Amino acid sequence: MATHLITGAGSGIGEAVAQRLHERGDELWLVARDAGRAKDLAARFPGAHTLVADLDTPDRLSWALSHQTLPDRLDSLLHIAGISDLGAVGELSTKRWNRTLAVNLVAPAELTRLLLPQLRISRGHVVFLNSGAGVTARPEWGAYAASKHGLKALADSLRGEEHTNGVRVTSVYPGRVATPMQAGVQQQEGNAYTPDKWIAPSSVAATVLLALDLPRDAEIHDLSVRPGYSGS
């Protein structure tokens, strides 16, 4: 039985990944913003452990986790939580920039730093749920794309640093996925939300598990996933 720590398990891709791992009997440690959300996650995933840590404030993550029980070892750390706050560079405030970078980039870096000892013990796997925006930046997507470009740099640096410790690092770059975040993006862009046009969260979850379950003699560095033809 493998042990996984997951951010973003409350909805969308994170929830789909947690469900797949829970169904096969793996041990889950789920990060929640507050005690109420932690209680909800514990009810949805019986037997899972919960950790309360607010990704909005990465400089407090060390303090928050130091007051809670952590796993002795980790087979994977799955960074799936994220936010998308769109807007032109000429309109975005520093508050919006800082929150986007905190949740999407700095918090994953800090969580990784804090949990590397457990990952090294098991020669574990760090997965960063990136985005197509981590490869190409479009108008109105400056802050989000910057955070995801930074996340790619974080993953690439970590991979080189931890290779000799046996820690694998994978970045997954999905296109648009039918999640609550995507519904918010469509609203920001002034479009109707049509989930049948986008990738199902379960399909991205399958991609994440593909990387996790790869035999130890191989490692997926970067994996892009795009909407396929639905036949409709």
Rank of each mutant, 00 (worst) to 15 (best):
L158N: 12
R138V: 12
V172L: 15
A146F: 00
A183S: 02
V169H: 02
W141G: 05
V177N: 02
A155G: 01
L151Y: 07
A178I: 09
M181F: 00
E140A: 11
P174Y: 12
Q182K: 01
E161N: 12
A155Y: 13
V169C: 00
K152Y: 11
V177I: 15
A153S: 09
E161W: 07
R159E: 10
M181L: 15
R176D: 05
A143W: 01
K152W: 13
A143Q: 07
V177W: 00
H163F: 07
S147P: 08
P174A: 13
P139I: 12
Y173N: 09
A183W: 00
S171E: 15
M181K: 07
V169R: 08
R176K: 15
H149G: 01
D156F: 13
R176V: 10
L154G: 00
L158G: 09
P174R: 12
A153D: 05
E140L: 13
Q182L: 03
L154W: 00
G142M: 05
K148F: 00
R138E: 11
S147G: 02
E161P: 09
A183G: 04
Q182Y: 01
T179M: 10
P180T: 00
P139T: 15
A146H: 00
G160V: 10
P174F: 13
E161R: 14
S157V: 11
N165M: 03
R176C: 01
T170D: 08
G160D: 08
D156A: 06
K148Q: 06
R176L: 04
G160H: 10
H149Y: 15
P139D: 07
E162K: 02
T179W: 02
R159S: 11
V167A: 08
Y144C: 09
G142C: 10
Y173V: 05
T170K: 09
Y173I: 04
V177K: 00
K148H: 03
E161L: 09
A137V: 14
L158S: 13
T164F: 01
E140T: 14
R168I: 13
G150I: 05
D156S: 09
P180E: 06
P139V: 15
A137Q: 11
V167C: 02
K148C: 06
T179A: 03
V177L: 04
V169K: 02
D156I: 08
N165Y: 09
A155M: 07
W141E: 03
K148N: 09
K148G: 03
E161G: 14
Q182V: 08
L158E: 13
A155F: 06
R159W: 09
D156V: 07
S147A: 02
A153G: 12
T170A: 08
L154M: 04
S157I: 12
G150A: 03
W141K: 11
P180I: 02
A178G: 06
R159F: 06
G166V: 05
V167Q: 12
Y144I: 10
A145V: 01
G150R: 06
G150N: 01
S157W: 11
E140N: 11
T179C: 03
G175W: 00
E140Y: 13
A143K: 02
E140P: 10
A145K: 08
V169E: 02
D156W: 14
A145C: 03
